[in-house]
């Protein structure tokens, strides 16, 4: 059993850090897909089955909230856990994300423990 996941962030640095953090968790991680914005993320989701998505909000082309809207509107993906990781940590932004169906929310800067805590609360569907 393994969980494949998708990391969406326009910063390669953050994608790399998240990969490092996730590989240190006790969660059995399978493939880690990457995307630089919402459009790339949708292309990855169309081509691959993933257990959950970690996404930044503030991105060019298609931001994280727009991506979340697309995922929730798709019959195949609507139950997929989506965690938003962003420096946009205001209460209004958190409420907006929750209202749109975000599974969790982590504010940058984050610790590995904060990422772990959010992942522990998710019900995931393994891909293998």
């Amino acid at each position: 059993m393994a969980f494949d996941l998708l990391i969406v962030d326009d910063s390669a640095a953050i994608r790399k850090i998240l990969q490092r953090v996730l590989q240190k968790t006790e969660m059995p991680i399978g493939k880690i897909y990457e995307a630089g914005d919402g459009f790339e993320a949708l292309a990855v989701l169309r081509a691959n089955k993933v257990s959950f998505v970690l996404s930044d909000i503030n991105m060019p082309n298609m931001d994280g909230l727009q991506l979340l809207g697309q995922i929730r509107a798709n019959e195949d993906w609507k139950a997929m856990p989506v965690v938003l990781i962003t420096s946009e940590g205001s209460q209004a932004r958190v409420m907006e994300a929750a209202h749109m169906g975000a599974t969790g929310y982590v504010r940058k800067p984050f610790t590995p423990e904060q990422i772990n805590k959010v992942l522990e609360g998710m019900v995931l569907e393994p891909v293998a």
């Binding site: 910063s11 940590g89 205001s90």
Partner: peptide, 12 residues
Amino acid sequence: ELTNMIVGSFKN
């Protein structure tokens, strides 16, 4: 990204 986080924390 560091700048984004610093200015983001300041903004918050």
